[in-house]
Design a protein around this nucleic acid. Structure first.
Length: 488
RNA sequence: GGGCCAUUAGCUCAGGCGGCAGAGCACCUGACUUUUAAUCAGGGUGUCCCAGGUUCGAGUCCUGGAUGGCUCACCA
């Protein structure tokens, strides 16, 4: 009703509302006592045949035959056919039925039977209009295809495209399963602040907001990491948070400005333990919800059978680029190789940054997975513990599924001296113009100075995981209301 | 932010070369008591995304803009 421009149909239905009210029929009714869901009746015909049932839902199709008529009613469980005849309900009720439009929400009561053609149907003895629909629904053959309208008006998408509802039901089940899995293993679910005075825990640009009473700018969180690690310091030895985070970055089929992660921390664990947790968690989700470990994404097979391969990042770089960074020990040498490979440099890049760039530019899009890539350079991993055998690398891994990075994890850095040095290096990069470099977080350092136990930490991108599990090509297909430019 | 593409009825779409704006579904009028993409007879309901320009004449050609999709860049 906010639009200035209405279809004729809108006015026709408005007029119907006035006529209904004249006859004493309220077009926006109170709740209707329901005994069954549509899907329940269709699935239990043997028990329910000839029984009286009450259902409610939206009329999604109508077929009139003079003094009798058919319609389909849709509720959350599915659709069921309704049959109504004038000699059953009377002329007045039948003429009221005839004024109903596709899209109206009604409650209906009658006996369950099967038509000549074998469809399970309710023979209506009475019905109530519960909510009059003013706007016509999209067409029944093709549904709603316009992706812009599907995202902007997800409610219409959900009404007419049943597969969309299935995706979001699966999403809910996946999250539910993750929560139960972690609860079963003794992890405590917590909620930490969304508004941060220091945005940390990831390399990303934050959104900025303002608190009026305190008169301070606050950042929307870009990760839950640093607060969860404070809780580990506080003695919460197994903890997780399923939460929305916000990154002020571009939008693509793999990126939405707000998205959901689960971050998991466990003391007396290391990144090897986190690999096991990752693969077991994802495999159990697939097994439980899809019933198989052999799934396909975009027409390509993805076998989630355990264990998943583990490979050193440096080995992968060597395989795909032919460059062995083991034999290039210093920054200068690394920069020379980078220039040879056609990379544009600013001149102050470190060896570790260049190795990581090689991985991202020349390797990442060729990985299909499942695969754990481990041992990331310390320069690009400011919160991860150094490998004991080589301090230039960290006990960090990323998990690739169907070519997408879906998890990032490490043995946590618990040494407050090293952590301070890492932050200082980041702050320097920030001062040099890197807007995604980490900020100094003194309170987090204070927490580490109280002593943090050895801990394994893991973050999983829930939206991407659900894309893979539902074979969805765009992250917007698994987010109910993806970020869109507002309409003028 | 760059590149490519799209935008025509409520929805899904067609509209060679510049010449009266089209189809199916939906909707409206009527017929029809087990249909199911119901059927039959009749009816076109429009800011052709917006603003300029070229032209006797623009949905169509040109310029600029808006929104969206894909893609590259950045990130997860």
């Amino acid at each position: 009703m906010s639009e200035v421009h209405h279809s004729d149909e809108f006015y026709i239905r408005q007029k119907k509302i006035a006529e209904l009210r004249e006859k004493g029929v309220e077009p926006y009714g109170d709740k209707y006592e329901v005994t069954h869901q549509a899907g329940e009746i269709v699935g239990n015909f043997a028990e329910l045949e000839d029984k009286i049932v009450s259902v409610s839902g939206r009329i999604v199709s109508k077929r009139g035959h003079g003094k009798a008529a058919f319609a389909h009613l849709q509720d959350m469980s599915g659709r069921i056919q309704l049959y109504i005849r004038q000699d059953r309900v009377g002329e007045e009720e039948y003429s009221l039925y005839k004024t109903l439009d596709v899209g109206d929400i009604i409650g209906a009561t009658g006996e369950v039977f099967k038509t000549k053609t074998g469809e399970i149907t309710i023979n209506i003895s009475s019905f109530n209009l519960l909510s009059k629909s003013l706007r016509p629904l999209p067409e029944k053959w093709h549904g709603l295809k316009d992706v812009e309208l599907r995202y902007r008006q997800r409610y219409v998408d959900l009404i007419v495209n049943p597969a969309v509802r299935e995706v979001f039901i699966t999403r809910s089940k996946v999250i539910q399963h993750i929560r139960e899995y972690l609860n079963r293993k003794g992890f405590l679910e917590v909620e930490t602040p969304v508004m941060h005075s220091v945005a940390g825990g990831a390399s990303a640009r934050p959104f900025i907001t303002h608190h009026n009473a305190l008169d301070i700018d606050l950042y929307l969180r870009i990760a839950t990491e640093l607060h969860l690690k404070r809780l580990v310091v506080g003695g919460i030895e197994k903890v997780f948070e399923l939460g929305r985070i916000f990154r002020n970055e571009g939008i693509s089929t793999n990126h939405n400005p707000e998205f959901t992660t689960v971050e998991i921390y466990q003391t007396n664990a290391d990144y090897e333990d986190m690999m096991k947790l990752t693969e077991e968690l994802v495999a159990s989700v697939a097994e439980e919800i899809l019933g198989t470990l052999k799934i396909s994404y975009g027409g390509k097979e993805l076998d989630l059978s355990l264990p998943w391969p583990r490979r050193d990042l440096l080995d992968i770089v060597r395989e795909y680029t032919g460059v062995d960074f083991e034999s290039i020990p210093d920054d200068d040498g690394a920069r020379r190789v980078a220039l040879q490979k056609g990379l544009e440099l600013e001149g102050n890049e470190s060896r570790g940054q260049i190795i990581f760039t090689f991985f991202e530019k020349f390797c990442e899009d060729r990985l299909w997975g499942p695969l754990f890539v481990k041992k990331y350079p310390v320069e690009v991993s400011p919160l991860a513990r150094r490998c004991s055998d080589d301090p230039r690398y960290t006990c960090r891994f990323e998990t690739f599924l169907a070519g997408k990075e879906i998890a990032d994890a490490f043995s946590e850095l618990i040494d407050p001296f090293d952590q301070r040095a890492r932050f200082e290096a980041q702050v320097k990069m920030r001062a040099a113009g890197d807007e995604e470099a980490h900020m100094m977080d003194e309170d987090f350092l204070t927490a580490l100075e109280y002593g943090m136990p050895p801990t394994g930490g893991l973050g999983i991108g829930i939206d991407r995981l659900i894309m893979i599990l539902t074979d969805s090509p765009s992250i917007r297909d698994v987010i109910l209301f993806p970020t869109m430019r507002p309409r003028v």
